[in-house]
Design a protein around this nucleic acid. Structure first.
Lengths: 143, 143
DNA sequence: TTTCTCTTTAGAATAATTCTAATTATCACT
DNA sequence: AGTGATAATTAGAATTATTCTAAAGAGAAA
């Protein structure tokens, strides 16, 4: 496969690796994240999943999202106190939060920038992840 | 003055600049943040302020903190879904969130790193702030 | 003083998320 | 195919952090 995303079988595999099952709910939640990559909230995912699985509950959506985050298939992103948003982009990237539109943009992070950022950590700090969030406004072109 | 912090008069001045008054509540809340710079939550600030102002309410603590953030005297910091924490450090710095202890450490950000980070933004993205959060564990020495 | 605005206060309301207990589905074995 | 064990889903209650509301208090200005 050439993309960074994952087939349904591969999803099943990833889940199995963690001793978890591939359920319709998990598959649909994941596919919904892949289909429209606009960093939806749990509520938004809930709404998008319902046409396919009319009886799914919001709690299940939360459970599935949490599961996908645990399996490293999805990243959870938080802006201030807003609801958590979910992002299936597995490349290292920062987030740009547009205050006008409320939209979130992925910003690619070249390895050398990541490295420079990590270099600020004094001895004795062992980071296993870093999150970079810009806040500001983006021009029309980026809507 | 040699420090990055601010006298009570200067606080009054900063507030006045925004058309706000220097109240005992605001002064005590601010002084509590300066005294113990461990990124307390609103609840923790509330507890620390009470000995001085036994009748203060939690809503007022939220109000004061918000006011100080508006005046650029304090930064609000969020980790995941946890409660907002407050930080009177005005220098550009990142945060390191120690998952073992729950403690938050300020990590100085040299200008050239800040610049490198900002350089990842494509044309058309106008960031007015950037927040960098590391997550991991710190050695004993940093407790 | 009187008035006007800003601030504080207590408690109610809200929003997002997590928890609980019951049901349902799936798996591993026979 | 049947049975028990385990995992997952569900609806609704509960929780947490925060914000809102309406009333009371305080300070500056007229």
């Amino acid at each position: 496969m050439s993309t960074a995303t994952i087939t349904s079988d591969a999803l099943a595999q990833k889940l199995a690796d963690s001793g978890l099952r591939a359920t319709p709910q998990r598959e649909v939640v994941y596919s919904v994240l892949l289909k429209k990559r606009d960093h939806p909230t749990a509520d938004e995912v809930f709404a998008r999943v319902k046409p396919d699985l009319p009886t799914i509950s919001l709690a299940t959506v939360y459970n599935c999202l949490e599961t996908l985050v645990q399996c490293d298939l999805v990243r959870a992103v938080n802006f201030e106190r807003g609801p958590t948003r979910y992002c299936p982009n597995l490349q290292p990237h920062a987030h740009f939060h547009d205050e006008q539109t409320g939209k979130t943009h992925d910003i690619d992070l070249p390895p050398e920038v990541l490295e420079k950022v990590s270099s600020v950590l004094p001895r004795g700090y062992d980071a296993k992840s870093v999150e970079i969030i810009f806040r500001g406004k983006a021009t029309k072109a980026h809507n």
